[in-house]
Amino acid sequence: MDISNGPHWSPYLVGILIGFLNILALLFSNRAIGASSSYAKISGIIVQKINKDYIEKNEFFKKNPPEIDWGVMLIFGIIIGSFISAIISGDFALIWVPNLWTYLISPAIMPRMLTALAGGIIIGIGSRWAGGCTSGHGISGTAQLSPISIAASISFFIGAISTAAIFYGL
């Protein structure tokens, strides 16, 4: 927690605290931390405004009702928490293109936006297909010794490391 060391803490300390936070979530709200399912709920909430009938008849949304629940609030919380930390450590900066992307690909905004959009769409499909993401399967599910979560977590990184090698180069 050396301030001169920039905005960041030791990854081990952060990991240990996230581990405790997972326990707190189970203890106080009977929920395992996971981010991805909330995006499906948010999509349902948005589409509901335009076509309520479709959402009511859709099999997925029958099982996963689109409502602002614990998980959707968790997403808003993550945005706020990261913002607070970024502001107090002087690390908040509005940027369109990440530095490493500029270095590896290009400083232009459009290629980054299109790739982020495509990557986001693929993540949305993949996370619902697998039933979770890096937090839900990777941390919460693996710590609960769920075979499905362990298989998903390994697959996330196999897919991501190979794609990164092809797309960004070695």
């Binding site: 981010a35 991805s36 909330s38 995006y39 990440p98 490493l100 992307w101 790739t115 982020a116 495509a118 990557g119 986001g120 769409i121 693929i122 993540i123 949305g124 499909i125 993949g126 996370s127 619902r128 297909w129 697998a130 039933g131 993401c133 890096t134 937090s135 399967h137 499905i148 979560s149 298989a151 998903a152 977590s153 390994i154 697959s155 996330f156 990184f157 196999i158 897919g159 991501a160 490391i161 190979s162 794609t163 990164a164 797309f167 960004y168």
Partner: peptide, 19 residues
């Protein structure tokens, strides 16, 4: 988990962030 996980991984690398 494996099929969805591999799809997720492709998007994870392109976006450079997860949910």
């Amino acid at each position: 988990a494996v099929i969805g996980g591999l799809i997720f991984g492709v998007g994870f690398a392109l976006l450079g962030l997860c949910p």
